[in-house]
Nucleic acid binder design. Structure first.
Length: 472
DNA sequence: TGAAATGTTGGGGCG
DNA sequence: ACGCCCCAACATTTC
């Protein structure tokens, strides 16, 4: 007798290798249906545009990789509760497998679906695929609620170790009769007119194979010196694994397994993965983190309302080269160097006094690695409103940050061609160049490149006094 | 995973 | 030779 088919519901785990749900389905011996749903349902936050672009490439790659193992990826769009109920009924699914999600609106859906399937005599098994430690697994030794500070959190997670082994490879899957599928191209995930994704295309190889290649390149070329180089936007010194992690084209388990167990550089990357886990831990225990100030006193913060300033920040027209370079890199490639993210975020919040949620929304829409936990936790960290946040008085000086981390200006020259020929001494502060020097470089401040949108010193003092009002 | 203001120190110029 | 002052250079404090 042939067993009833197994359904594998793929979500933020768009990979074949180290995919515990897919692995379990394969091992069950049942014929497999692989399903991806473009969820259109009330609750979960809609995907950003850059995310959708990435998703298209990711699904294409996943579909090819599944096909090579004998299974067609089924694409459906709509309410996952209805779609799964329908497929379960029509295909007479015997068991459903998926990897767990950790954002409240999504876990709620998953629970509903699980309940429904169980009531229809369909087994459900769920797995941990995307976190070394699931949010409820790291607990403080005392009974003072969830850990709210990174260092003790990370120490506890290191002590716990890596709880899940990477699953073995899957060579062949037994295909079930494939339910009807939509066409990826009909979803319009990628832009056509205007096609704003050409630079993104040139910057990234989406999909699991791209992820593996990126990990290999990183280990070969950039791990040595990572602890320092990761802060340098003018050097390709970061891992650039974030979009692959966000879409689940690689797991932190695979990365950890590939890293040397000792050494400053590997430790640093483990700590970065730790921040990602800490963000999920926080979001799980404090679901409001995504929209509300973690520190309630920030609810009284006097944010300014300045649409024009927001627009100039978004377009990279603030007049501060390191900020503008970062914002343009984001717009063009869907990604921004981590050090520059902090500078740009600090600038929006502290120099422009705009609500961190406006920045969070922009990043959500434009980042290919937009991650619900990381994005919210990191913006609140910069704002000073988060758990274990940077103190409010920590205001980045965009000029000093530029000079320190992009010393010869090659990063800003690359993204801001209009100031590319300014001398090193002025490339991070064009407003200090003499008229002669500006003319020689073909720069007219306020015309070819903006004059600073705010004066650093005035803005800094304004921010400090604004934060001062919270204390009262 | 800051920056700026303020404090301290010590070498050297100079009367 | 001595005291005085200046001011880098570094340390500490404050925001």
């Amino acid at each position: 007798m042939t067993s009833r088919p197994a359904l594998v519901w793929l979500r933020n785990d768009l990979r074949i290798s180290d995919n515990p749900a897919l692995h379990a389905a394969a091992k069950s011996g049942a014929p497999v249906i692989a399903l991806y749903i473009l969820e259109e349902v009330k609750g979960p936050r809609p995907m950003g545009a850059a995310w959708r672009w990435w998703l298209a490439g990711s699904l294409r790659a996943l579909s090819d990789n599944l096909k090579a193992r004998g299974v067609s990826l089924v694409l459906r769009r709509g309410d996952p509760r209805k779609i799964i109920a329908e497929i379960a009924r029509e295909a007479s699914i015997g068991a459903a497998y998926w990897n767990r999600r950790y954002v409240a609106a999504e876990t709620k859906l998953d629970t509903e679906i699980e309940q429904h399937l169980l009531s229809e005599d369909c087994a459900v098994e769920t797995f941990n695929a995307s976190l070394l430690n699931e949010p409820w697994e790291i607990k403080s030794k005392g009974a003072n609620g969830p850990i709210r500070v990174f260092t003790p959190y990370f120490r506890a997670s290191e002590e716990r170790g890596n709880p899940r082994a990477v699953t073995g490879d899957i060579r062949k899957l037994d295909a079930a009769k494939t339910p009807k599928s939509e066409k990826l191209d009909d979803w319009n995930l990628e832009p056509s007119k205007p096609d704003w994704a050409t630079d993104m295309d040139a910057s990234w190889t989406r999909g699991e194979d791209g992820a593996k290649q990126r990990l290999k390149d990183f280990l070969d070329d950039a791990l040595k010196g990572y602890a320092e180089h990761r802060d340098r936007p003018d050097i390709d010194g970061t891992s650039r694994l974030s979009p692959y992690l966000a879409h689940g084209e690689i797991s932190p388990h695979q990365i950890t397994e590939a890293l040397p167990t000792r050494g400053r550089d590997a430790d640093k990357l483990r700590a970065e993965l730790g921040w990602r886990e800490f963000s999920y831990h926080l979001l799980h225990h404090y679901p409001g983190l995504a929209r509300e100030n973690f520190q309630r006193r920030f609810n009284a913060f006097p944010w300014r309302d300045d649409h024009k300033a927001l627009k100039r920040w978004q377009r990279g027209l603030t007049g501060y080269p390191i900020v503008d370079a970062g914002m343009r890199q984001l717009w063009r490639t869907g990604w921004m160097h981590n050090r520059v993210r902090m500078v740009c975020a600090s600038f929006l919040i502290k120099h422009l006094l705009l609500d961190w949620r406006l920045g969070e929304e922009w990043f959500w829409d434009t980042l290919v690695d937009a991650d619900p936990a990381n994005n919210a936790a990191s913006w609140q960290w910069v704002a000073g409103s988060g758990a274990d946040a940077a103190p409010y008085f920590r205001v980045f000086n965009p000029t000093l940050q530029g000079e320190k981390f992009d010393p010869d200006g090659s990063y800003v020259r690359n993204w801001i061609p209009e100031i590319a020929t300014l001398a090193n001494d002025y490339v991070h502060k064009p407003w200090t160049a003499s008229p002669l020097e500006l003319a020689a470089a073909g720069v007219t401040l306020g015309k070819t490149y903006p004059a600073p949108i705010v004066d650093h010193q005035e803005a800094r003092e304004r921010a400090l006094s604004a934060f001062q009002t919270l204390k009262a």
